[in-house]
Structure formats: C-alpha cells, structure tokens
C-alpha cells in the first residue's frame, strides 16, 4: 500500500512536528488524513472540524505552509514527494496541536463594529433594498464570509501588528457600511479607521488569494478607506 508521510504539529506554541505514516487513498482530503491519525495512530491528537463539506470553516489549518480548509483540500492537490506538513493556522495562538484560539479574531469583529445595528422600529415598514442597488451589490461581494480565519492567518500585516483588525473583521464592517438598514455607519467608520484598521492594509492581497469563498477582503478594505476619507472630509468622523 502506498503511504503518505505526514508531518503534524504537536503541542502548544513551543511544540514540534511529529511524523506519521498514513495509507494513501483515492480522493483523500487533508482532513481525512488528520482524522486517520487521530483514530488509528494517536488518539491524543487535537483538531477541529464540524461539517466536513466546506460550510462551517472550522477545519482551517496550515497545509504545506498555506492556510486552507482541510476538508476541501485534496491530498493530491498539495502533496509533494508523498509528503505533507500540517500545522495550526498562523497568527492565532495555539491551544494544542492543530487547535487555535479564535477569541481575539472574533473580538476584532466586535471592535470593528461587526454587529448589525437596526434603526427602524416594528412600526416601520420593511426596508426595500433593490438587488442591483450599489450598496446591495457591494455588500453581496463580501457577505458570504463564514469566519474560518484563513485570510487572517495569511495576512502579513496581522503578523507584524497584532492590533490590526484583520481582513475578515474589516470585510464584515464593509458589508454593514453598505447596509441601508444599519444605523451605526458613523461609529463603525470611526472604529475601522487608523493604523489598527483599514489604513494599515498594504494591499498584499494574500487574504483575497487564499479566501476559500473567493471573497476579496482587499477590495472591502479599499472601500472602507474611501468611505472613511469621505466621512473625514465631511467632518463626520
């Protein structure tokens, strides 16, 4: 039987790679490989997954140095010389093995005012948003984010500025800035400005290159820069 040489990160931040031999199978995903190790070789291996079909975003890891959803990554796509290396997501604190702490990542969504703030009451009519209105189109471009953290793990700015809100949180803010039903545009633009916010982005585009949902957070961040500048010029910041 053909074997796959798998190097897996074990332990916390000060851990190390350990090697495993996993039988190679047809249409095998990287998540299948991790699951095989946990069920057949070492049950103490910790990792996270839920849906296994690319809906939840829980199984994102670093595969051969690149952040990916392991459930949607075929071994055949990434294997080199019958070997792969699997590590926890970069830019996240490691809890154990392949499990990372997502708290700071999602706290940054809150700091970027990622919550929808309704401004109508139950006595108001439903908002009517035309599907082809500019705001709806702009929001649509970023709305499918499921918070997997691949963009955040791929972002150079996050790696050198831990305060940076990151592509996912800023993309979320941008979808709300374009939501005509939202009542916190001004506060949100103030929250995402500055060197921990949209102005820190260097347009490296790693987030957009790696996003499994084909979202372009870089474009959302550029949109925020423009919206923040307009707000500043109008004295609304």
């Amino acid at each position: 039987m053909k074997m796959l040489h798998v190097s897996v990160w074990r332990g916390g931040a000060g851990g190390e790679y350990r090697s495993y031999e996993v039988p190679r199978q047809e249409s095998q995903s990287v998540l299948d490989v991790v699951t095989y190790i946990q069920r057949n070789i070492d049950p103490t291996l910790s990792y996270r997954f839920a849906c296994r079909v690319g809906m939840c975003g829980a199984c994102a890891m670093t595969v051969n140095g690149v952040a990916r959803w392991t459930c949607r990554t075929h071994v055949a796509k990434v294997v080199k010389d019958d070997a792969i290396q699997i590590a926890p997501l970069a830019n996240f604190p490691v809890v154990k093995d392949l499990v990372t702490d997502m708290r700071e990542f999602f706290d940054k969504w809150a700091r970027a005012r990622g919550q929808f703030v309704p401004c109508a009451t139950r006595r108001d009519a439903f908002a009517q948003v035309a599907a082809d209105s500019p705001g709806r189109v702009a929001a649509n471009a970023g709305i499918e984010c499921i918070g997997c953290g691949v963009c955040y793990a791929s972002c150079d700015v996050v790696s050198w500025n831990p305060d940076y809100l990151g592509p996912a949180a800023l993309n979320r803010a941008w979808t709300l800035v374009n939501d005509v039903r939202d009542g916190a545009r001004r506060e949100r633009l103030a929250a995402v400005a500055g060197d921990a916010g949209c102005h820190a982005c260097h347009t490296h585009l790693s987030c957009s290159e790696r996003c499994p949902k084909d979202i372009t957070p870089t474009a959302s961040i550029a949109g925020l820069k423009r919206a923040v500048a307009v707000a500043a010029l109008k004295g609304e910041l």
Binding site: A110, R113, Q115, A193, G194, A231
Partner: peptide, 20 residues
C-alpha cells in the same frame, strides 16, 4: 466585548488624525 449590541471598548482616538 460588544456582543449583542453592547457598548464596545471605547472610542478609537487616532481615527481622525490617522485618516487625515
């Protein structure tokens, strides 16, 4: 933490100057 619409951890003091 700002969840459920709770107030967030204060304003962003550098927002205006950094934008300008």
């Amino acid at each position: 933490h700002g969840y459920a619409g709770a107030p967030l951890a204060g304003p962003n003091p550098g927002a205006r100057s950094e934008t300008w």
